[in-house]
Design a protein around this nucleic acid. Structure first.
Lengths: 338, 338
DNA sequence: CAGATTTCTGGAAGCGCTCCCAGTCGGTGT
DNA sequence: ACACCGACTGGGAGCGCTTCCAGAAATCTG
């Protein structure tokens, strides 16, 4: 590193200039009690005249607390940075951190097997806790971190059987809401385009749909799986239409797939919602601007980030009876497709 | 904080278990020379058996180097997180950091006057350097940071007269390219929808356009300013059309504004590109998908992030003759509007 | 006014690491 | 045999801060 410019003042210098001991200087800087007004004044003076600001590193080392938390994305960074979902979570986290005095360290995998170095970084005292966004199903990272004693909160229900607190949208009941709504609208044969079988969101939304239908005595066999992509949604819709010609409603596990379904429906000259009703999930930007505007289940994504942060901070405080995990309520947004 | 689980092992313990001194243990952990094979082996053993990982805080304190840099956004976080420009810069920075062993700390203003606390954080030894994305014109932060001796690289040419290295797209020549292209296409009266007068991008793109036209002996008075918004672009287009009915080409300083202009043109029944040619700037996602697809000047945004990072790292290395700042070349992307 | 508090203060021991320095030990050269 | 040099090692002094502890000064008891 090049010439660093001026020397940066230390607590010792402040103390010397103020004519007090380092202890006393430290006390006034940290606003502690048992300091005379005179000493307080002198130190304050010295601080401003020297332009002193405490070295956080040293402070952290002494206090064993870093005042920063990590937002960990175990996926490769490039894939996730363009994702609006992630941007909204990040925004929520940022909002949740406001006023806490904590800093956010962003940690994204660089290579595919970067997990080792991430784990090392996280467990070696750099941060006080971690928020983990783990889109992938089988991620060993959360378990590792918890095992090392680092406070961790996950984004989304983990598939693995680990004791890690998480925050998630209430996918189960959200899907239920959608199904119930379709039933209430008098729909007779209600199908679903579900997500992958190996992702918690896919599983939960499917079982929510299934529960509500079967409790209403309806058949629950009109299921097609897809991968949350537009093309996947289209293919699944074709499939469903072929297998169940009488289908008059479909709950689609994501807005993007729902839009794919809409394409197929229009392509076949099937009217929405007259002939087939469509309900999506997410209420992403796409839903409001699609044609026709999509009826969908809104999940509160910013809220998710904010809640994760709150949960982690609460854990720092040592709040006794903290819910192990929290589910955020969803809301059915009525637009034109159902 | 709650019970932290197991005690985390220190270098001292490793040394004790390996039966060597702390110095020796440190040597093998840092892969330094002058260590006997036996000692090396013993320490390696101890490390794995104890699950030791060095405390970065302590290391940083001793070495006066933190191995992390900050990406600073002086704008309020909420405004910037949805911005695809920022996401792409971030992605570039992330890519640029790959393999460097440096961590990224994300710093965004929380309140409006959060600058003070950001400056404090940055100058108090938390990071080795800072990448500052300062969309606002008159931002005092860069100057403060540089004054404190922290290596800094800016994103975008600063308006203020400060000696801070920056990386920017070559807005001046990019706008020139667009203007030249329109001239070459045989356009006679070429206008521009320029950005705000108080933003460097606005100024540079305007003067690039102006330079090229005036060197070709063309008039440079068909100018309308707008604020980079869709609505602003629409209003400016109206204005231009009214003031210069003979206008047959327009260079618009951003894709979003260009799309606004397109709306207006279509609304008036003016054919694009037959009657009026339109060239945008950015090549954001919008450009390719607009109807008709927008001819535009591509600026390499990821590259911008990557270059900022490279510039900062080079500064760490103490590279002697580093360019004070670097301009990234732009490229004209021909589509259907010109 | 002696004695018990209650402020206030500085010394010193850490936090976990790096790195300089003085030293030990074998093996060369003459 | 001597000095000498290179590989190796451990002691110890920091890095800049917090915090415990014991002692000094000021204040309060009856």
């Amino acid at each position: 590193m090049v010439e660093d410019g001026r020397e940066i003042p230390t607590l010792d210098e402040v103390a010397r200039v103020a004519g007090v001991s380092r202890s006393t200087a430290s006390r006034v800087i940290n606003g502690r009690t048992y300091v005379s007004a005179k000493a307080r004044e002198a130190v304050a003076q010295a601080v401003t005249s020297l332009g002193y600001s405490p070295n956080m590193l040293a402070r952290s080392l002494a206090m064993k607390r870093t005042n920063s938390i990590a937002l960990v994305v175990s996926e490769h960074g490039d894939r996730v940075l363009g994702d609006p979902f992630f941007a909204r979570v990040l925004r929520g986290v940022h909002a949740g951190l406001a006023g806490s005095g904590l800093q956010l360290v962003l940690l994204m995998a660089q290579d595919e097997q970067d997990h080792g170095s991430m784990a090392t970084y996280l467990t070696s005292g750099h941060v006080d806790g971690a928020l983990v966004v783990s889109l992938h199903g089988e991620d060993p990272l959360p378990a590792q971190l918890v095992a090392s004693g680092l406070p961790v909160v996950l984004c989304g229900r983990p598939l693995a059987k680990v004791e890690v607190p998480y925050v998630d949208s209430d996918n189960f009941n959200g899907a239920g809401q959608a199904a119930q709504y379709l039933i209430d609208q008098g729909r007779r044969l209600i199908g679903t385009i579900a997500g992958p079988r190996d992702m918690a969101v896919g599983i939960d939304r499917l079982s929510g749909w299934r529960r509500t239908l079967s409790m209403a005595g309806r058949p629950t066999d009109a299921i097609a799986h897809a991968d949350f992509s537009l093309e996947g949604g289209m293919a699944a819709m074709e499939q469903l239409l072929t297998a169940f010609p009488a289908l008059d409603a479909v709950f689609v596990a994501s807005d993007l797939m729902a839009i794919g379904a809409l394409h197929v429906l229009r392509g076949r000259g099937i009217r929405v919602p007259e002939d087939v009703a469509v309900v999506g999930f997410d209420d992403s930007g796409l839903a409001a601007t699609s044609v026709p505007p999509l009826t969908t289940v809104r999940q509160p994504i910013e809220e998710l980030g904010r809640t994760m942060t709150w949960r982690l901070l609460a854990q720092f405080e040592g709040d006794a009876d903290l819910p192990p995990s929290v589910l955020l309520p969803t809301e059915l947004i009525r637009r034109d497709t159902a």
